[in-house]
């Protein structure tokens, strides 16, 4: 087996094992439209593939995937704000269709609430809700554990206010 083929297989395994993370990020950081989800998904996979040779197991593969996925999502959001018209690539809808068949209004509310947060806080909340430890979040966000704790505390306070503003109208 050639080295390239082995690399491809290894990468495919990584993507396969990280698909839940990838799609969670895609759902949380887009408008939940199939085009946007698939677009961001491809962008993240592309960046993973690009960064794959530089990944030397300093952190766990999941942590690395989280970091790349969240950074890509952040960059994509910024790009979208600058050139909203550039990013429209409709793609395969097989996965998203299965989720869209039976949309849950409670989940939509959750995403809408998260959408109200700034990008950085959104990333931290995403990781926190995904049951990552403070240490793991700190590693992904490139900050200290204490800073993460403080941020999460502030996000919690902010969410109450946002929740009141949004749903007590």
């Amino acid at each position: 087996m050639t080295q390239k083929k082995a690399e491809h297989i290894e990468f495919e395994q990584l993507v396969r094992s990280s698909r839940r993370i990838l799609y969670s990020v895609c759902l949380a950081f887009t408008d939940r439209k199939p085009d946007s989800i698939n677009d961001l998904y491809m962008e993240i996979v592309a960046n993973l593939w690009h960064g794959w040779p530089k990944f030397h197991n300093e952190s766990s593969p999941a942590t690395w995937v989280y970091r790349i996925a969240l950074n890509t999502a952040g960059m994509e959001l910024r790009k979208r704000r600058r050139w909203g018209w550039l990013k429209t690539y409709p793609m395969d809808e097989s996965f998203v269709a299965s989720l869209a068949e039976d949309p849950d209004p409670r989940i939509e509310e959750l995403y809408e609430l998260i959408d109200l947060l700034p990008d950085e806080e959104k990333k931290l909340l995403f990781l926190y809700l995904d049951h990552l430890s403070y240490a793991q979040i700190a590693q992904i966000a490139g900050t200290s554990e204490n800073a993460v704790k403080q941020h999460i505390y502030r996000i919690r306070q902010k969410l109450i206010q946002l929740h009141k503003q949004e749903y007590d109208r």
Binding site: M42, S98, R106, I107
Partner: peptide, 25 residues
């Protein structure tokens, strides 16, 4: 709890569309 529910839904959807997704690569 809503987030966890969604994670379960994603897992289920991924399990159902396993082959289709890998075609995307």
């Amino acid at each position: 709890s809503r987030w966890d529910e969604q994670s379960v839904r994603i897992d289920r959807a991924l399990a159902a569309s396993d082959v289709a997704i890998m075609k995307e690569l």
